[in-house]
C-alpha cells in the first residue's frame, strides 16, 4: 500500500511535488479549489527572461502528474490531528487519512483597487499586470482593444514595499515582470513610448540584468526612478500620471494611453482564513511560517506539514519548482526517518 500525501493547491508547486512524490513511490492526492490546474500560471502568457510560453510549463507539469489522484473544484473543510496522522475532510465529501500534508497554496495578487489614488476600476486606462498578461494570452480587454495606444506606463511596487497598503515586503518578481511585459508591448507596438516608474530595480535572477539592459538599449524603454503618487484622467480620457523623477529631484507628469499596475504578491487568504479547525502558523511577513528560513524552508513548525512555493513568500517559477522538488525529497526523508 502506497503512503498518502495530501497536497493542497494545484498550482505549479503542487503539480511538481505531486509528480515527484509519485515517482518516489507515494500516493499524492492533489486538491485544487479551481476547475483547472496550474494556478496563476495557467493565465500567464510567457515567462522571463527567455519568453518561454507559460502553457508549455503548465502542460508539462500536468502531464507528469497525470497518473495521480486530483480533485479539482474541491476545498479543504477540516483538518483533524490524530495521534500520528491527519484526517483531511474535503468539500466533495471525501475524507483522507494521511501522515503528511504539503501546503502549496501559493499567493494572491494584491487588490489594486486598494491603491485608490491609482484609479484602478475608476479610470478606463488603468489595468494590472495580470490583466495585461491575460490580454497577451489572447483574451480581449476593452480597456486595451478600444484605444489607440501610443504610450504606456508601468507602476512598480503596487501593494508591495508599502506599509500603508498592509504589505511592507518586496514581491520580488514584479520588477522583472514589468520589464518582460514592457518588452512584449514594445514588440507589438515598436513606436510606443513606454515608461517604467520604479523605486529600485531588483534584477536578482539568471539573465535578468541582461534583460533589463536590453529593455533600455534595444527597446528604448524609459525608466523613471520615483513612485507614482497619483493618477487622474484628462478630458480626452487619457491618464495623467504624477511622480518625482528622484534622480533629477523634480516632479514629473506624463499623459498615457495605458497604465499597468504591477500588483504584488500576498499570502493566499484561503490558507489563512481556515474554516477548518486547523491553523497554520504565520510569519511576520504575512506568509506561512517555515521551521527556519535558511535550511528548513520546506518544513512547517507543525509535525508532518510541509511547504512549497509562494505560500511562504514571493517566488519565481523556477524557484517554486525547485522548492516543490525539494519538498518531495523532504517528505520522502521524513517518512524514512519514521521507519
Amino acid at each position: 500500500m502506497r503512503e498518502n500525501v495530501v497536497i493542497i493547491g494545484g498550482g505549479i508547486a503542487g503539480l511538481e511535488a505531486a509528480g515527484q512524490l509519485a515517482s518516489l513511490g507515494y500516493n499524492p492526492i492533489l486538491i485544487e479549489k479551481e476547475d483547472h490546474l496550474g494556478g496563476h500560471l495557467a493565465d500567464w502568457h510567457c515567462l522571463f527572461p527567455d519568453m518561454i510560453p507559460a502553457k508549455d510549463v503548465v502542460s508539462s507539469l500536468v502531464g507528469k502528474a497525470s497518473s495521480i489522484n486530483i480533485f479539482t473544484r474541491t476545498e479543504v473543510l477540516r483538518i483533524n490531528r490524530l495521534r500520528d496522522s491527519y484526517n483531511v475532510m474535503l468539500s466533495n465529501g471525501v475524507s483522507v487519512m494521511t501522515r503528511a500534508i504539503l501546503l502549496a497554496t501559493g499567493f494572491r495578487l494584491f487588490d489594486a483597487h486598494k491603491k485608490e489614488e491609482y484609479g484602478y476600476g475608476i479610470y478606463n486606462q488603468v489595468i494590472t499586470n495580470s490583466d495585461l498578461e491575460k490580454w497577451f494570452n489572447g483574451n480581449p480587454d476593452s480597456r486595451i482593444d478600444n484605444s489607440h495606444i501610443s504610450s504606456a506606463g508601468f507602476v512598480h511596487c503596487v501593494g508591495s514595499r508599502d506599509e500603508k497598503a498592509g504589505n511592507p515586503q518586496c514581491s520580488k518578481v514584479c520588477c522583472i515582470t514589468a520589464i518582460k511585459q514592457a518588452i512584449e508591448l514594445k514588440k507589438k507596438y515598436p513606436d510606443m513610448m513606454v515608461w517604467c516608474f520604479y523605486m529600485d530595480l531588483r534584477m536578482f535572477g539568471k539573465k535578468y540584468e541582461d534583460f533589463y539592459i536590453s529593455a533600455q538599449r534595444d527597446y528604448g524603454i524609459r525608466f523613471i526612478r520615483g513612485r507614482v503618487s497619483e493618477v487622474s484622467e484628462n478630458i480626452e480620457g487619457k491618464v495623467v500620471v504624477k511622480a518625482e523623477d528622484t534622480l533629477a529631484g523634480r516632479p514629473v507628469k506624463v499623459t498615457l494611453d495605458l497604465l499597468v499596475l504591477m500588483s504584488g504578491m500576498l499570502c493566499n487568504p484561503q490558507t489563512l482564513n481556515e474554516k477548518a479547525t486547523w491553523h497554520f502558523p504565520i510569519d511576520s511577513d504575512g506568509f506561512l511560517k517555515c521551521r527556519n528560513t535558511v535550511a528548513d524552508f520546506n518544513l512547517s513548525p507543525q509535525e508532518g506539514i510541509f511547504l512549497a512555493g509562494a505560500c511562504t513568500g514571493p517566488k519565481t517559477v523556477p524557484e517554486t519548482i525547485a522548492e516543490a522538488r525539494s519538498a518531495a525529497l523532504s517528505i520522502h526523508n521524513w517518512f524514512n526517518s519514521k521507519e
Binding site: H113, I122, N124
Partner: peptide, 10 residues
C-alpha cells in the same frame, strides 16, 4: 471614467 468604480469606493 468608470462611474460604478467610484460608486464602489463611495
Amino acid at each position: 471614467m468608470i462611474y460604478q468604480g467610484k460608486q464602489k469606493i463611495w
